[in-house]
Simulated assay, not measured.
Amino acid sequence: MKLACTMAPGRGDTDLVLERLANALAARGMRCCGTVQINSPRADAGPCDMDVRVLPDGAVLRISQDLGSQSRGCRLDPVALETAVGLVAAALSPEVDLLIVNKFGKHEAEGRGFRNVIAEALAMDVPVLVGLNTLNRPAFETFADGLAVELPPDPAVLLAWVDMVTNNAPSLGGGAGLQTACLG
C-alpha cells in the first residue's frame, strides 16, 4: 500500500507544504487529484478563512463558515467539504499519479469526508499523501492499520517519496531515509 502522511509543526504549515508540493508536481506534468487548503487572513483579525482547491485545477471552495467573532465552535462547513469530496471522487481514476488530501480531519476520523476516497485510491493502487494533525493522529493510525509511512514536511523528501511510489525515479538509494517513522 502506498499511503503516507505528513505533519508540519506550525498552524497552517502543512497546508503550505502540500500546496507547494501539488504545484511542483503539476509543473512536472504529474496528474494529481485531491485538495489543498488555502488559508486567508481576515480583515477583522478573526480566524482565517479556509478554502480548498480541488486538484489539479478545479474549483476553489470556502470550507469555513463565519460563525461570528464570539464563536468557539467548529467553523468547518460540512456541505462544502462534502462537495469537495464529491468532486475529487468523480475525478479519481487509476490514471491519477497521486491523491493529495489536505487533512485527515475530524470528518475522516468519524468515517466521513475523504475517508472512502482514500480507500478507493488505495484499492486502485493510486498513492495517497494526507496532511495530519496531532488531534486526529490516533484515528489515522487506526485507519492506516500500520501500513502508512510518516514523512517529514520536507519538500525534497516528499518529492522523493512521490517519485519512488510512482516509479519516476531510477534509484533513491534504497529509500531508507524516507521512512522516518512508521505509524501503527
Rank of each mutant, 00 (worst) to 15 (best):
A26Y: 07
A24T: 13
E150P: 04
A43T: 02
K106M: 07
T166D: 08
N168G: 11
N116D: 14
A109I: 11
Q70N: 12
V130E: 06
R11V: 12
A160E: 14
C32S: 10
M50Y: 00
C5S: 15
N23D: 14
A45D: 09
R75N: 01
P9G: 02
R28Q: 15
F104I: 11
E82N: 13
C32P: 03
V162A: 07
D51N: 02
D51P: 00
R20A: 13
T35M: 03
L172Y: 06
L99C: 08
D77N: 14
K103T: 03
V101S: 08
N168W: 01
G184V: 08
Q37S: 12
M124K: 09
P78A: 04
V85K: 05
G131F: 03
V149G: 07
V85E: 04
G46Q: 10
D163M: 05
C74T: 06
S93N: 05
M124N: 09
I118K: 05
L122P: 06
L67S: 11
V79E: 08
D154M: 00
I63K: 07
L98T: 01
S71Q: 01
S93T: 13
W161R: 02
A27L: 12
G86P: 04
C182Y: 07
N168M: 13
L81T: 11
P138W: 10
C5I: 15
G177H: 10
E150R: 08
E120D: 13
L98Y: 00
N102K: 00
A123C: 10
N116I: 03
T14Y: 05
Q37D: 01
T14R: 06
V96N: 08
G29I: 13
M1T: 15
P56N: 03
R42E: 01
P41W: 00
A59F: 01
A156E: 13
S93H: 01
D44T: 05
A4K: 12
I63L: 06
A59D: 14
Q70M: 11
C32R: 01
L132D: 08
